[in-house]
């Protein structure tokens, strides 16, 4: 893989990842396309621009780490890891099939270069903080990135972890809330309102950055600000659109856990040409 900070190049990679997500979930006939599409720019900027990592040396001691706490968005992570060279691109469409390394939710038993097995919501922030604390004991300068779903932060454990992170000043951890405003049963505001979300994190002692999660420049700038913030962990509240990039999927709760049909895949790929 070739790392880059060039916005056009990153946008091109993001489009390719979107195409993979549509093809994978379409082929699998199940999975979570909406919340994968909303996270594309963030994941792309992390893997191609921000994070220190080497696909040829996945356990490199001083690597930065990414944990997809919202494990149901596995397709975005698989697509990014495959494009980086961690895993094969050609088998991405075996997603969710028996024997595939591309399990329904990330599973380290099948892909050892994954940082964590996730899927049960609410746990990734605690894991990230534990890794952050371990790195600090070692005097390492690496950073830990953890992506949370907006619905996910309804879990109580997230707020246990939020208290811990600020209290213990785990400033090498950066959480990202993929705030796409939709969850399985409908709009977040109708299921369990999170607002005022930024105030909540601030009250818990975190450095908060609100941004447009689909603007590559804004995402780059936010990660730079997060790395410079000392003495407290940072949370990016990334305003995103569920299903982003595919017109008929955008803001449509249906595509939380329903894949596109064969015809919809073709239509989507035309839009993403």
């Amino acid at each position: 893989m070739q790392k880059t900070s060039n916005v056009q190049e990153l946008a091109g990679i993001a489009k390719q990842i979107r195409r993979h997500i549509v093809e994978m979930t379409g082929a699998a006939k199940s999975g979570h396309p909406g919340g994968s599409l909303s996270a594309v720019e963030i994941v792309t900027v992390l893997y191609w621009d921000v994070m220190k990592h080497e696909p040829a040396n996945p356990k490199m001691a001083d690597r930065d780490r990414f944990i997809l706490s919202k494990g149901h968005a596995a397709p975005v992570l698989y697509a990014a890891m495959a494009e980086c060279g961690y895993t094969p691109v050609e088998t991405l469409t075996t997603l969710r099939q028996l024997g595939s390394i591309y399990q329904g939710h990330p599973d380290v038993r099948f892909i050892p270069s994954l940082e964590a097995s996730t899927g049960s919501l609410g746990q990734g922030l605690s894991l990230a903080l534990g890794i952050g604390c371990g790195m600090k004991l070692d005097g390492a300068t690496s950073r830990v990135y953890v992506m949370l779903g907006d619905g996910e932060i309804q879990e109580g454990q997230i707020w246990e972890a939020a208290m811990f992170g600020a209290f213990h000043k785990v400033d090498n951890v950066c959480a990202i809330v993929d705030y796409n405003k939709l969850q399985l049963d409908g709009f977040v505001k109708d299921i369990m309102e999170l607002e005022p979300l930024a105030d909540k994190w601030r009250a818990f002692g975190w450095h908060v950055i609100e941004l447009d999660g689909h603007s590559i420049e804004a995402v780059q700038k936010a990660f730079a600000e997060a790395a410079a913030a000392k003495g407290k962990p940072t949370v990016l509240i990334a305003n995103t659109v569920k299903g982003k990039g595919v017109s008929f999927m955008e803001n449509n709760p249906k595509y939380h856990g329903v894949p596109p049909t064969k015809e919809e895949v073709e239509l989507a790929l035309k839009e993403l040409a």
Partner: peptide
């Protein structure tokens, strides 16, 4: 960890993932 066992368990897992 304070009175927060769920966080403690997963935090411990994170520490283990750095070789502790």
């Amino acid at each position: 960890c304070g009175i927060a066992e769920a966080n403690m368990v997963a935090l411990g897992a994170g520490l283990a993932m750095t070789g502790k």
